[in-house]
Amino acid sequence: MRTLNRVKELRVAKGHESQREFANFVTNNLGCPVSYGTINKLENQNGNPTWELLDTLATYFQVSTDYLMGRTNKNLAVAAHVDEEPGDELPPEAKIAVDTFYNKMRALYGKNKGTVENS
C-alpha cells in the first residue's frame, strides 16, 4: 500500500503548524490515538497508516482515502457524487463511506470485468 503523501499539505492548510501538535489534535479531538512519530513517518513516506487513522484523516480533511494515498488528484470526498447527485443530503462521513465502497467495487470489477453491467 502506498503511504500517505498529502498529509503535510492538508495539515498546514488546516492551521496545524507542527506534526506534534497535529498528532495531539488527532488523538484528543478526533478520537484516534496517533503519535508524533507516526505523523512524521507518514509525511516522509516511511509509514503505512492503520485503516482507522486513514479514515479519521480523510474525514477530517474532507477528502477521499484515495486522494490521501496519492491514487487520485481529485480531492473531493465523493468524486462520483458531484452537482446534486442522489445522496447529496448524506453527511460527510456517509459520503466517504460511499466513495470508499465505490472505489473498492471499481477495483474489484473494473471496466468490463465481472458480471455487473454498467447502466
Rank of each mutant, 00 (worst) to 15 (best):
E43T: 11
S35K: 09
G70D: 09
G110C: 10
R20M: 03
S18A: 03
G87N: 00
A94G: 03
L42Q: 05
I39P: 01
K14H: 07
K14I: 00
F22I: 05
K95N: 00
S64M: 04
A13G: 03
E117T: 13
D55H: 12
N24R: 10
G47K: 11
S119C: 14
A13V: 13
R106V: 11
I39E: 06
E52D: 13
L108Y: 09
P92Q: 08
S35N: 11
G110F: 12
N48I: 15
T59W: 12
L57K: 05
N24I: 04
P92G: 06
G70N: 05
T50W: 15
L90E: 02
R11S: 03
A58E: 00
N118W: 13
W51L: 14
L42N: 04
R71Y: 06
E89A: 01
P49N: 06
Y60F: 15
V98G: 00
E17G: 05
N40Q: 13
P86A: 05
N28K: 13
S18D: 04
G114V: 08
N48E: 10
R20Y: 02
G15T: 09
T56Y: 00
E89P: 00
T27P: 05
K74M: 05
Q45T: 09
E17H: 10
I96M: 09
G31V: 07
M69T: 10
A58C: 07
P49T: 08
N5Q: 10
N29H: 10
K41V: 14
D55K: 12
F61V: 06
S35G: 07
T65W: 02
R71E: 09
N44S: 13
F25G: 06
T65S: 11
T59N: 09
G31P: 13
R71S: 05
A77P: 10
V82F: 02
S35V: 06
I96H: 01
V7W: 01
R20F: 05
N46D: 07
L54Y: 07
V12F: 04
K104A: 11
A94E: 09
A107D: 14
F101I: 14
A94M: 05
P49S: 14
M69W: 10
N103C: 11
P86T: 04
D66V: 11
L53F: 09
P91M: 08
E89I: 02
N112L: 14
A94K: 14
Y109W: 11
V34E: 01
T27H: 09
E9M: 09
N29S: 12
A77T: 07
S18L: 06
L57E: 02
V116C: 10
K104I: 15
V98N: 03
E17F: 08
N48H: 15
T3G: 14
T50E: 12
F25T: 02
E43I: 08
A79M: 00
L90Y: 01
L57H: 07
F25A: 04
R106E: 07
D88C: 01
G70V: 12
N103Y: 14
E17M: 08
D55I: 14
N48F: 15
Y102P: 00
A13L: 09
V98A: 00
W51G: 08
H81M: 00
T65N: 10
